[in-house]
């Protein structure tokens, strides 16, 4: 299973690269945003960070770069795409996921280890979790206040697209405490928390590991071959 991590100016790409290397021991390539052909990869991880300095709106500029054509195509082919934090914002800005991000309701940047509840394990990213499982995953963002209109929210619920919700405390004011959603088909996931920062105990939590192992298992069970 080959992974690509798109790199925009301002991305924190190495965290995602290291997570794949350390957890899955599979080949992973950091790909500069000028490249639009991602056909050789099986999964794409759009990393966190501040692409283009968060200028205009977080993710807005990156969403219009050549590499997003490759991401779009991969999504259409049913390959796995995950956007983490700024990556989630990019997926929203490029229309691959519905909704939008607003500033955190308290207007401050927030870095913490958030407690999430797994809402859905019927998708490629959460197969190894239990529904209702509480997991601790770091967050670090200024604009993670997910918003969508009521109709979209109803759609998300109907199609089981809400993957993670914050419990105990909603750190940014997002609609219904949403922390991560996927597309209708289930192969594109966006989430504000950082599973790549939760892969060994000394990080404070290793609850992110199962997200990556779930992806690998899904790929293997669906005809993936090394």
């Amino acid at each position: 299973m080959r992974f690509a991590v798109p790199v925009f100016p301002g991305s924190n790409d190495m965290d995602a690269v290291h997570a794949i290397e350390d957890v899955l021991e599979r080949p992973v390539t950091a790909v500069w945003h000028h490249e639009s052909d991602l056909s050789q990869y099986d999964a794409i991880i759009i990393p966190g960070g501040c692409s283009y300095g968060d200028y205009l709106r977080p993710g807005a500029l990156a969403a219009r770069s050549p590499i997003m054509e490759g991401v779009q195509k991969a999504a259409e082919q049913g390959k796995l795409v995950i956007g983490i934090s700024n990556g989630f914002q990019i997926l929203l800005e490029s229309g691959l996921l519905p909704g939008a991000m607003r500033k955190n309701d308290h207007l401050q940047f927030r870095c913490d280890i958030a407690t999430l509840i797994v809402e859905n394990n019927q998708n490629p990213f959460t197969g190894h979790y239990q529904v209702g499982e509480r997991i601790r995953i770091p967050i670090a963002h200024a604009q993670g206040n997910y918003y969508c209109d009521e109709q979209t929210l109803a759609e998300l619920k109907k199609n089981n697209q809400i993957v993670f919700k914050y419990v105990d405390e909603n750190p940014n004011g997002s609609v219904e405490g949403i922390a991560g959603i996927c597309n209708k088909r289930g192969n594109v996931l966006g989430m504000m928390p950082h599973p790549e920062r939760a892969i060994v105990d000394w990080m404070g939590t290793s609850d992110g590991v199962k997200l990556f192992t779930s992806m690998l298992r899904y790929w293997e069970e669906n005809g993936g071959a090394e």
Binding site: H18, A19, F109, C111, R197, I199, G204
Partner: peptide, 16 residues
């Protein structure tokens, strides 16, 4: 103060 700082970037922080 410190929760306004991204103290876990680079995924190498062992003591927060």
């Amino acid at each position: 103060v410190y929760r306004q700082y991204d103290h876990m970037a680079r995924a190498s922080t062992a003591v927060l």
